[in-house]
């Protein structure tokens, strides 16, 4: 009994030590440190300028989504941030260390998952992750502990002895993420981490990214807007090699927002009657009994509409608020600012 208690206390201590400590530190420290900063990055391939004067900053405990169409320069940017590609000009600092002048020290703080996971398919998961850990400078003594932690957080314990080439794509992707986090880097860079996965796997990986965001800073590129909505604190939109918009992802949904609702009535009144309700700015009839009512954000005529419908026996069938999704915002932002090169 006493031993059981001791073991439980030990396990609890372990979990607290490793999972909550960073979060506590962030709570204690009101201004989180900047883990990654890039200034005036440019990059060209041949004569074509791919990245124009890019500035980026990332704080500890932040998940940043880099959003853009295919070919917007997302992958190139991430390759530069991880030292796989040298920038044409500009400066990158990882935890305050210049990536160009002290690449060895700076790269020890980076975990990178490229577009296709860099897996040695002939190795087993254990062997591969051990190699990745040693490569990132983890000493022989602490490899086992780092390995177990990475296997656990990526849900790979059941396949640890399998050869990577025999794993499904979802598991291979997880192994790719595991190699990026095994040394608990301050900056985790994920290039389209959920591409090609099934919905359940996508959900798992998003949860994992969310967890990683508690202790490290994560930067992920994607063209899936849902991903940004569900995991990112902040979003940067890239187009033609420029960052054209930057904001919190919750904020972004207000961008170009329409406020209003869809109303279905069994006995609809005249259009003019709906338009005359105070606060309503515009009414469109989308079907014989369905209307799209827009109003000003500060003046919501919802309750008035409900009481009118009851009074005049319009028989309300449905009242759905209109939501601007990131999709709308993305389209309106890229459409507005997108200048063809």
């Amino acid at each position: 009994m006493a031993i059981q208690l001791l073991v439980r206390a030990y396990i609890l201590g372990y979990i607290q030590h490793y999972s909550q400590l960073p979060a506590l530190l962030t709570l204690l420290n009101p201004t989180p440190e900047i883990t990654l900063s890039a200034h005036h990055l440019t990059r060209s391939f041949g004569k074509q300028l791919i990245i124009h004067d890019l500035d980026l900053q990332l704080k500890r405990g932040e998940v940043l989504g880099l959003l853009g169409h295919n070919g917007a320069g997302k992958s190139t940017t991430l390759q530069m941030l991880t030292g796989c590609l040298l920038p044409g000009s500009g400066k990158i600092e990882i935890c305050g260390i210049d990536l160009r002048q002290k690449p060895m020290q700076a790269k020890a703080h980076i975990g990178y998952l490229p577009e296709s996971p860099p897996l040695y398919r002939e190795l087993s998961v254990n062997d591969y992750l051990t190699f990745a850990a040693r490569l990132r400078g983890i000493g022989a003594a602490s490899v086992a502990e780092a390995l177990n932690h990475a296997l656990q957080s990526c849900g790979l314990e059941s396949v640890r002895k399998k050869i990577i080439s025999t794993l499904s794509k979802g598991y291979q992707q997880r192994v790719g993420i595991a190699q990026a986090i095994i040394h608990r880097p301050a900056v985790i860079v994920l290039d389209e981490p959920t591409v090609g996965l099934d919905p359940a796997q996508i959900r798992d990986i998003r949860n994992l990214i969310r967890e990683l965001g508690n202790s490290s800073s994560v930067i992920l590129s994607t063209h899936l807007l849902g991903e940004v909505e569900s995991v990112c604190d902040r979003v940067e939109i890239m187009q033609h090699g420029r960052l054209i918009y930057s904001d919190s992802s919750a904020h972004m949904q207000h961008y170009g927002q329409v406020t209003g609702f869809i109303v279905s009535l069994r006995h609809p009144p005249e259009l003019a009657e709906l338009e005359s309700i105070p606060g309503v700015s515009r009414v469109e009839q989308t079907a014989p009994d369905t209307f799209r009512i827009l109003h000003t954000p500060e003046n919501n005529p919802g309750s008035l509409l409900l009481s009118l419908a009851a009074q005049k026996d319009w028989q309300l069938l449905q009242l759905t608020p209109l939501h601007a999704t990131l999709e709308d915002a993305f389209v309106s932002i890229t459409g507005e600012k997108g200048v063809k090169p």
Binding site: G83, C84, P114, E115, P118, Y120, A132, L135
Partner: peptide
């Protein structure tokens, strides 16, 4: 070809 070079290039190696 297998794009595993990225692992080596992004690791603290020269």
């Amino acid at each position: 070809r297998n794009q595993t070079l990225a692992l080596l290039l992004s690791s603290p190696l020269t």
